[in-house]
Design a protein around this nucleic acid. Structure first.
Lengths: 231, 231
DNA sequence: CGCGGCTTTGATGTTCATCAAGTAAAGTGG
DNA sequence: CCACTTTACTTGATGAACATCAAAGCCGCG
């Protein structure tokens, strides 16, 4: 183990403060020693549904989608995930194989650790295990809440919800570039592509949003929030 | 601490083998010392949405539903839970308050442990923490998978799915008593009560099931499975 | 340049929610 | 125990929401 290992800059990584806070400097070095940082272009598949889980992957930079393909060849999008939402965490401790795919929807950087090493540390360092659990629990909860929220809304409310999600939760901006296609929005909210497009056009006609291809500008935030809540 | 404590029969409890396997006999006695076993009648609310989380509750016997009420006063059912599916586990490690309610849909028995004590053990016993995490992770995964499954189906497929769920997953029998009302099925699959009833009636007319009030007998399993998969 | 995928709009039909109205069952208070 | 109220269940009629089908324009890419 070399302290000069160029890969080994984890002690500066934001990850440390998030869930390695109970891992000693020395342990961290050991974990870093076997880590791989990988860059992914928009569209790259990072994890393929069905693959064996051998690693502990987390998203350092970018944006990804979790999805699952149905028996009739279509895709369902489970959620979108930002850095530190630990995309690979979900099945990691309960399955041997991934039961969904992870795809970059923006250029992204992942950090890959050997799962067995992480597990070994978790089995000996209880505080670390607890931090992991809190994270797993929180991420799962978010997904379940979000799904309930979408489920109770109609088409317009769902589309409005997604726009607000990207605007507020991902980009913190009234103007942003949609990282997903209309079809992907449809796959996320469980409606057809055509109806997503029709709804966006309608919002545009009603001057609630402006559309420039992939770019969206929210013009009337209150109305959009109202549609999301009651529409 | 008394070994003759009448409450203290945890060492015989099935729970032990499930996720206290890495807890020593002595630790188990300490945990048992502060446990409360409670009986609930069908319909009783065990956990109320919004309540502070002070305890670690698990289902020892019976059947419950997890639900959440929407802003417009209706209910959404998140999942049904059998013993050892650890109903209170979900939010316990990520929130201070429950964000759903738990209600007995059959006469049930819960076991209540002090959350702080459980947490304290988890923070010192890494193997115990890992077992907990595996459980949390697995339960969450099941809920997410199940929701995706329902989402991709139409009315008939969803109703068929629910019938098969109770028949195969809960009762292991072609004949069973529905533990939920038609309205609750509707709240679970995200359709209206009327349409759930209509679909059940249709299945009856097509001789796929027999209905005697709450009792259901699956007559044509293959057709029901087919409807669940493709209908 | 042409191909495939993404986007858009319109027309049409299906699926489902809503409204209405009635029966059955189950709980409630005298 | 019975009248009363409420809740669950059931069916039909109607209209709204949404999927499907079709056709055309657009854009990026080999």
């Amino acid at each position: 183990m070399s302290l000069e290992n160029p890969k080994c800059n984890c002690e500066k990584c934001e990850l440390k403060s998030l869930f390695f806070s109970n891992v000693s400097q020395e342990e961290l070095f050991n974990i870093c020693e076997i880590k791989y940082e990988t860059e992914h272009r928009k569209g790259d598949v990072i994890i393929k549904e069905g693959d064996k889980i051998n690693e502990f992957i987390y998203l350092k930079q970018g944006l990804v989608k979790l999805s699952k393909s149905t028996s009739d060849g279509k895709d369902q999008i489970i959620c979108f995930s930002k850095p530190f939402d630990f995309v690979s965490l979900l099945s990691v401790f309960s399955s041997t194989n991934y039961n969904y795919s992870v795809t970059a929807i923006e250029d992204s950087v992942t950090c890959l650790l050997d799962l067995n090493v992480v597990k070994r540390y978790a089995q000996t360092n209880a505080m670390f295990a607890m931090d992991l659990m809190t994270k797993v629990s929180h991420v799962s909860d978010m997904i379940i809440q979000e799904n309930l929220e979408i489920k109770r809304k109609h088409l317009k409310g769902r589309v409005a919800h997604v726009l607000l999600y990207f605007s507020e939760h991902v980009y913190n901006n009234r103007t942003f570039e949609l990282p997903v296609s209309r079809r992907e929005i449809a796959e996320y909210i469980g409606m057809t592509t055509e109806n997503v497009i029709r709804t966006l056009s309608e919002f545009r006609k009603d001057k609630i949003i402006k559309i420039f291809g992939k770019y969206i500008e929210i013009g009337d935030l209150k109305r959009l929030e109202n549609i999301s809540e009651f529409g």
